[in-house]
Write a protein that binds this DNA or RNA. Structure first.
Length: 502
RNA sequence: GGUUCCGUAGCUCAGUUGGAUAGAGCAUCAGCCUUCUAAGCUGGGGGUCUUUGGUUCGAAUCCAAACGGAAUCACCA
């Protein structure tokens, strides 16, 4: 009871005092050759949510993303566009920029496969040999070399097409309601890490082979030997990551650096952290790989090249459309302006999608069945949103003059259902801290569901406004108001908005 | 083959610092709208927590093995 009083009077209930810790969260980190898909959406929502949760735990949070804007993949799109694009632009075709570039990535793959098939048939060679002879691939590789050499026309083309992609991504991010404080571009960072290679060689942590390639031996730690620099002196993925880790630390001197990256890279991050430790980097221990499971479809994994991906923009559009039809069927749109309606459909549709992806433990792989659209009933975002709207409705309909909670409490005997609600509310800050510690937003998601469920139970059994006992009304108004506040705050930690009417 | 992760109801998931009859949602069956929004509520049926062994007063939870599934072990990123 006293806890409830302090909680209710605390405007920032749930927010922990500052820890003076600085945390960087890197998430999304897309390639610029294709649009975002459902897997990215899970990544992005996890990154956004854990950032909000860590803020609530009292940390200073820097949200960052590392755009993979260079490499052979983008060259493939560029080349295909040059060859088959006929000057198509997003403005002219009306196609979203990232989708347009993705289209040519697929075009490249088609043409490449056709070429291979042809070579195999005509020259009677193996697919492997055909791949080596592929002119298309050679052209793409040449384009990458030209890019690295700074050849003007290639750079111009690269800038233009990446620009299209960024416009597309910006629209998707806006739809998802996420932002970044800092964007790193791989085109600026891919050469970093060379100094780290020198450092490692000097310290004797790395070793150089006769062919000039540089390696690190991790067999003593139960891992393998790993190449860090090719014999031609160019760096590999992990080397770039070593350099980028240093850059991030130089920029922000953060205590913890979280990488929201799929669990297929578990090994990579183990190696990265170990190498940084061996190099004696002070920030090595602060690196945390927030590893999450893949989103699978009923017939297996999503593969961009095979077209078995669930496109992020399509999915968001479908969710909003089905929120619209469901809401209209229920006849809940009367009295709303067009603008309010659109906002409501958006809030509900995105709420359903976001909750669906965040309610499961990030570590676990999850199943998405496109045939069964995401539900709006039961353990879902809209259920929790609906609970909030119900409480708002009660508060709107109230006509009596409100008393302070202190006054309403005097001599008031709690009903068991009221007690349970208070107990549930009391858990809120504890759950946030747990979610932050475990790097697990689903803790908050499940908490919000339990609270909403508990409230609906209360709502079915007891009445707030229909009572002869004014003291009871006074107290229950405070109680349900607090439930609404906590639901709203919980959902905001997940990046989900809650409507006042639905 | 090595390493890592996973296996709980028909389906999707909670629960795992060891503790009482293992919980939700979906689906299914039976009820509840003249009463603060039925996107809701109540109840029924549905589980040898993959299997076997061990530790323990006590195991879904800890240990070992087996079986089943996934990821990874690239001079790709």
């Amino acid at each position: 009871m006293n806890e409830f009083l302090t909680a209710k009077n605390n405007a920032v209930f749930g927010q922990s005092p500052t820890t003076n810790r600085k945390v960087m969260v890197e998430y999304s980190s897309p390639n610029t050759n294709k649009p975002l898909h459902l897997g990215h959406v899970r990544n992005i929502l996890l990154g956004h949510s854990i950032s909000e949760i860590l803020k609530a735990c009292g940390n200073e949070v820097i949200k960052s993303t590392l755009v993979n804007d260079r490499g052979i993949h983008i060259c493939k799109s560029m080349l295909a566009w040059q060859k088959f694009g006929n000057g198509e632009t997003p403005a002219r075709s009306g196609l979203k920029g990232d989708h347009l570039v993705g289209k040519y990535y697929v075009e490249f793959d088609k043409a490449y496969k056709a070429e291979i098939k042809n070579l195999v048939a005509i020259e009677n060679i193996s697919e492997e040999d055909a791949a080596k002879k592929s002119l298309l691939m050679k052209e793409a590789q040449q384009m990458l070399l030209d890019w690295e050499a700074g050849k003007l026309d290639v750079i111009e083309l690269w800038k233009m097409m990446n620009g299209w992609v960024y416009d597309g991504f910006d629209a998707s991010y806006k739809m998802l309601g996420v932002t970044f404080d800092k964007t790193y571009y791989e085109s600026n960072t891919y050469l970093l890490g060379k100094t780290a290679v020198e450092e490692g060689l000097q310290q004797g942590v790395f070793e150089k082979e006769i062919d000039n390639s540089v390696w690190v031996d991790l067999t003593a730690d139960g891992l393998d030997r790993k190449v860090l620099q090719r014999k031609d002196g160019t760096s590999v993925y992990i080397t770039q990551d070593i350099g980028t880790a240093q850059l991030k630390y130089d920029d922000y001197k953060m205590d913890e650096s979280i990488y929201v990256v799929g669990n297929e890279q578990d090994y990579h991050f183990k190696v990265l952290q170990l190498i940084l430790k061996k190099l004696g980097k002070p920030y090595a221990d602060g690196i945390y790989h927030m590893s999450y499971g893949m989103v699978e479809l009923p017939n297996g994994k999503m593969k961009s090249r095979e077209g078995t991906v669930v496109d992020a923009d399509d999915l968001m559009g479908e969710m909003i459309a089905s929120a619209k039809s469901t809401t209209e069927e229920l006849g809940k749109v009367e009295g709303l302006s067009e603008v309010e309606k659109e906002k409501l459909f958006y809030t509900i549709g995105m709420g359903a999608l976001k909750y669906f992806l965040l309610k499961v433990d990030p570590k676990k792989k999850m199943l998405f069945n496109p045939a069964e659209s995401i539900d709006f009933h039961g353990h879902t975002g809209p259920f929790i949103q609906y609970t909030h709207a119900r409480i708002c409705s009660i508060l709107r309909k109230n006509t009596i003059t409100r008393q302070s909670l202190e006054d309403s409490l005097k001599g008031y005997a709690l009903h068991p259902l009221e007690k349970k609600l208070i107990q549930e509310i009391y858990l809120f800050p504890i759950k946030i801290l747990e979610a932050g510690k475990e790097h697990n937003p689903s803790v908050v998601a499940n908490y919000a569901f339990n609270l909403a469920k508990e409230f609906n139970h209360f709502y079915a059994e007891l009445s707030v406004l229909k009572s002869d006992n004014e003291k009871e009304i006074q107290f229950r108004l405070h109680l349900v108001e607090m439930v609404a506040t906590v639901i709203k705050k919980s959902m905001l930690l997940l990046g989900i908005d809650v409507p006042e009417k639905m």
